[in-house]
Each structure stands twice: as C-alpha cells, then as structure tokens.
C-alpha cells in the first residue's frame, strides 16, 4: 500500500523540528506545494519553540536550591505504590483519627501534635485529586454519600475514570 506523502511528512515533522532529522529535497518540494503540510509544519515549528523565552528566564540552579531546601524539611513518607481505594480508605481513617483526637494534639495536656499523627496527615498529598475529593467529601456531613465532584471528565486518568465509573455503578 502506498503511504501518502502527507502522512510521512506529518510523522517526521517532530523529528525534523528537534534537529534529529532533515527534509529530503523531495520532501522540501512537497512542503512548498502542499497547503496542509505547510500549515502543519508551521504549527510544529511554532510549538517546538513555545516557552523557550520563559524557560530561558528561569535559573535552574535557583530552582534546585528551592526544591532541595523543601525536600530537607519534607517528612519522609512510606511510599504508596499505586494508591487505590484501600489507600483512600486508610487516609480517611487516618484523618478521622486526627479529627477525633483534635488536629493540635491533646487538649487536656496542651501538648503539641504527636509524631505519629503528624506523620499520617501528609499521606493525603500522595493521593490523586479524585481520591482526595472523595476523602474530603466523606468528611462533609452535608454532602450525600453519592455526591462526587467530576469536573473535566476527559481529563481524568484512566485509573481515576475507572474508579468513578465503578462508584457510579456501585
């Protein structure tokens, strides 16, 4: 089967724009005579340099210093490989303990938060947005159990989408 030159050029455009490949004279000819390919080439060229100005203004060393400084103060958490419903449940239980005990530790003694509780709370930030929303929803007494916030359904990860659909289907 003969592949259309437009398809060949389209596939090669990102490689040419990154400098990893070059147009052949035949391809150059096609680009100058085919309106569709010329338009696409213009798009790919512009997208290829998009953000260069902003990126050039950023100092990577300064960024590294800021990130490393934050990493130093970030409590180490146990890795949650592929957090799923069980992770959301565990986080909800952990947060419930925090709510029951009070977020600022023992009210009677006035002591600060215990190390264990402080350790549990940052786990919430390892959750994906949807899981976090579900956990937060579970704390809102005004929210019916079935209420879920699902903005931008086309933006959900496949895993998130499966979870939402499973929840809808019971």
């Amino acid at each position: 089967m003969m592949v259309k030159p437009c398809n060949v050029l389209s596939d090669r455009m990102p490689d040419v724009v990154s400098g990893g490949a070059h147009w052949t004279p035949e391809e150059e000819d096609h680009l100058s005579s085919c309106e569709e390919c010329a338009l696409e080439w213009q798009l790919v060229q512009r997208a290829g340099v998009l953000g260069d100005r902003v990126a050039a203004a950023v100092d990577p060393d300064a960024m590294a210093a800021k990130v490393v400084e934050r990493l130093r103060h970030k409590p180490r958490v146990l890795p949650f490989r592929r957090p799923g419903w069980w992770a959301a449940g565990l986080a909800a239980a952990a947060a419930a303990i925090v709510l029951l005990l009070g977020p600022f530790g023992d009210r009677e003694t006035g002591a600060g938060p215990s190390a264990e509780i402080v350790w549990l709370v940052p786990e919430l930030d390892s959750l994906e947005t949807t899981e976090l929303l579900l956990v937060l929803n579970s704390f809102d007494p005004a929210a019916p159990a079935s209420v879920m916030v699902v903005p931008f359904i086309d933006d959900l990860e496949r895993q998130e989408l499966e979870q939402v659909l499973q929840a809808w289907e019971g």
Binding site: A55, A56, M63, V68
Partner: peptide, 16 residues
C-alpha cells in the same frame, strides 16, 4: 536531587 532538578527545570517550565 540538585542535579536532577538542574537538568530538567527548563523542560518542565516549557511544558507547563
């Protein structure tokens, strides 16, 4: 970590 951040900062900025 410093090296990884320095190496990839500009790519992340361009992407975002």
């Amino acid at each position: 970590a410093t090296e990884l951040v320095t190496r990839h900062t500009r790519a992340v900025v361009r992407f975002l």
